[in-house]
Design a protein around this nucleic acid. Sequence first.
DNA 1: GGCCATGAGTGAACGGTGTTTACGAGCATC
DNA 2: GATGCTCGTAAACACCGTTCACTCATGGCC
Lengths: 246, 246
Amino acid sequence: MTQATRRERGRAATDREIRQQARALLVNDGPQAVTLRAIARELGITAPALYRYYTSREDLVEHLRADVCADLAVELGNDLAPVPESDHLGQVLAICRGFRAWALAHPQEFTLVFASPSEPGVNCPAGPDGKDAAKDSFGRIFLTVAGRVLANGLLSTRPDVEVPAALVPDLERFRLDLLTTMAESGVDVPADLLGVDTAYAMLQFWVRLYGQVALEVFGQFPFPVTDAGPLFDSMLADLTREVGLH
Amino acid sequence: MTQATRRERGRAATDREIRQQARALLVNDGPQAVTLRAIARELGITAPALYRYYTSREDLVEHLRADVCADLAVELGNDLAPVPESDHLGQVLAICRGFRAWALAHPQEFTLVFASPSEPGVNCPAGPDGKDAAKDSFGRIFLTVAGRVLANGLLSTRPDVEVPAALVPDLERFRLDLLTTMAESGVDVPADLLGVDTAYAMLQFWVRLYGQVALEVFGQFPFPVTDAGPLFDSMLADLTREVGLH
DNA sequence: GGCCATGAGTGAACGGTGTTTACGAGCATC
DNA sequence: GATGCTCGTAAACACCGTTCACTCATGGCC
């Protein structure tokens, strides 16, 4: 079981503790509170000791981002679990509502992961294939649901919206990426069911979902909204209707 | 002209300089670089002197937010100027594109003003009427354009989308707020042209505009996008079509 | 014109931060 | 048992926001 040596186990344990405490500070007191000295204090060690685990504070925060993503992924998985796999609309609604609920419940984490203005490549510790390794676990769960919907031929792109020509090359790459990712997740999507138009529809879906959630988290309504829930559901209904999901 | 005394003029001048330097630091080196000591250093004074002007660093940042808003408002005004007032669609496009361009060109400022996770009341120095005084100048310019469109009866809400019942009270307040604000801006909008459904449409318009811009600024696309411009224009076309603007 | 309150700015200090460096104790291995 | 490697410490440096006691020019008032 634990082939790791005694030292390795100890190291892994404190590493877990570090991230755990960092996370607690982030949630309870905001991002400016996640400070090396505070983390060390909670663990009963001194700040420089943390440099045995992370090269800098920013490095730690980066790993924190990945942790948050992973947690979000399992949380969305839990939201998805009670919905029967055959209820495709229900699954889509569950994951979208789950994402919103998570974001509203964890604004600090949401900001850290989804609203940090950083040039690409700095923010995300890219995996060996150049992809964002951290957010992948989160994206995968979205794509698994989307894949199941696609595999059942439940999506119908609107013929009246045409894909902007300038986006076609990017979308083509996205399409291939989707197909491989879905295949990895065990969902077999016939390639002809996922055209460039479908990829475009998925992009637009995400844009609106992300946008609505971000607006809610940052409270950027043009007037005080007592309950944004119905607004979100209205948007969600519009969204599912537009992609032909019923 | 300058009735102010010598001291008052000096005070106002250094205040301007403070905000100017703070702004420069924000733009060039990010929010964490706008530090009291750095600002003071640039001005050739010491940090405690800044406390004669602002009660704390947070207070200064708050005023910085207002400055940014005001600048955004005048910039949008400039974008709007070359478009003839009769070209309503052109005005709407100009202001939306202007907002996007500003956000992409000033990500730090955008984050500061539009993506800071803060409970309401803390963030914005509310005016005497309880409204967000800073963002008002920015919202007003949007509303002026919207008002002109409305006054000409160019908006047609879709009959197939119904307003969520839970939002009606909020929307009613928003509607009245809109009418008074538009009247203040010199645009006379007949009250019957701005129903709750129209207010809802305007809300949705803003949600999608804000959402798309935020997504672009934070680069949260599910795949690398070489040029997001066409995507934005596509969304904008969709948006104007949905509100019946042609 | 002289007086004095006021207000801008200073310097030192306190407690906090990230980070580097030199050093010591303990574990794993030969 | 000696050796080397790893985790952790203590001290130090350079910053940061903020407070406080202090100067000193300014501006209103007699």
